[in-house]
Deep mutational scan, measured.
Amino acid sequence: KRPMNAFMVWSRGQRRKMAQENPKMHNSEISKRLGAEWKLLSETEKRPFIDEAKRLRALHMKEHPDYK
């Protein structure tokens, strides 16, 4: 399984929150809205998620050196 990218790290928490606030909303609609919100974030707002994704990628490479 591939490590999560920055968007996936961010959206994991956001998706849960949005699903709780809008229980009838379909997952595909939640995904569209999350994608639009992510695009509006500044580089500074994205930075912690980018850093976490880098950390996860490095850990994955260490644990699975033969993974392509």
Rank of each mutant, 00 (worst) to 15 (best):
W38Y: 05
L59C: 12
F7W: 05
R12G: 12
M61T: 13
L34D: 04
G13T: 13
W38D: 03
G13V: 12
W10R: 01
L34A: 08
G35A: 14
L40S: 12
W38V: 01
K1E: 11
R15N: 04
P65I: 09
H60P: 13
P3L: 08
M8S: 09
H64T: 14
Q20H: 07
E37W: 01
E37P: 00
P48T: 03
K24R: 11
E29H: 00
F49L: 01
M18G: 02
I30V: 06
M8L: 10
K1M: 12
G35E: 15
A53R: 00
E63L: 09
A19R: 07
P23H: 02
R12P: 04
M8H: 09
K24T: 11
S11N: 03
E21A: 05
L40P: 01
L56P: 03
T44Q: 09
M61H: 15
A36R: 08
K24D: 10
L59K: 07
I30C: 05
R55M: 07
K46R: 09
D66R: 07
K39Y: 03
R55S: 08
N5F: 03
K62N: 11
A19S: 09
Q20E: 15
K39S: 10
F49Q: 02
E45N: 01
Y67W: 08
V9T: 02
L56H: 06
R47K: 09
P65L: 09
Q14W: 00
R16A: 14
L56Y: 05
Q20K: 09
P65A: 13
K46N: 01
F7Q: 01
K68A: 12
F49C: 02
R12L: 14
E45W: 00
R55F: 04
L41S: 01
H26V: 07
K17W: 06
F7V: 02
L34S: 00
D51G: 03
K32W: 06
R12Q: 15
S42R: 03
A36D: 14
M61V: 13
I50S: 04
M25Y: 03
L56R: 05
K39N: 09
R47E: 12
L40R: 12
D66K: 11
K39P: 02
I30G: 01
Y67V: 14
E29A: 04
M61C: 12
Q14K: 08
S42G: 06
E37Q: 10
A58G: 11
R55N: 06
K39A: 14
R16S: 14
K17Y: 08
R12Y: 09
F49I: 01
D51N: 07
K62S: 12
I30W: 01
M61G: 13
K54M: 10
N5T: 15
H64A: 13
K39H: 09
F49G: 02
L41I: 04
R2V: 13
R55K: 11
R57C: 10
P3H: 06
Y67Q: 13
E63R: 08
D66L: 06
T44F: 08
S28H: 07
R57M: 10
F49Y: 10
P65F: 10
K24I: 08
Y67I: 15
A58F: 09
S42Q: 04
K17E: 07
E37F: 02
K46D: 00
R12S: 15
W10G: 01
A36W: 07
Q20A: 11
K54Q: 08
K24E: 15
L59V: 12
M8A: 14
S28M: 09
H64V: 12
K39I: 06
L59I: 11
R57L: 09
P48F: 03
L41G: 01
A6R: 00
I50V: 11
P3C: 06
E63G: 08
R2T: 12
I30S: 02
H26M: 10
R47C: 02
H60D: 15
E43F: 05
N5G: 07
E52T: 01
W10K: 00
R15S: 10
G13N: 09
V9M: 08
K46T: 02
E37R: 05
K17D: 08
K68H: 08
G13M: 11
R47V: 05
M8Q: 13
L59T: 12
M18T: 04
Q20R: 07
H64S: 14
L41F: 03
Y67L: 12
L56V: 07
Q14L: 06
E45A: 07
S11I: 02
E45Y: 06
E29C: 02
S28L: 10
W10T: 03
R57P: 11
D51R: 03
M4L: 09
M18P: 00
A6I: 06
N22S: 06
H26R: 10
K1W: 10
R57I: 06
A58R: 09
G35V: 15
K46Q: 05
M25P: 04
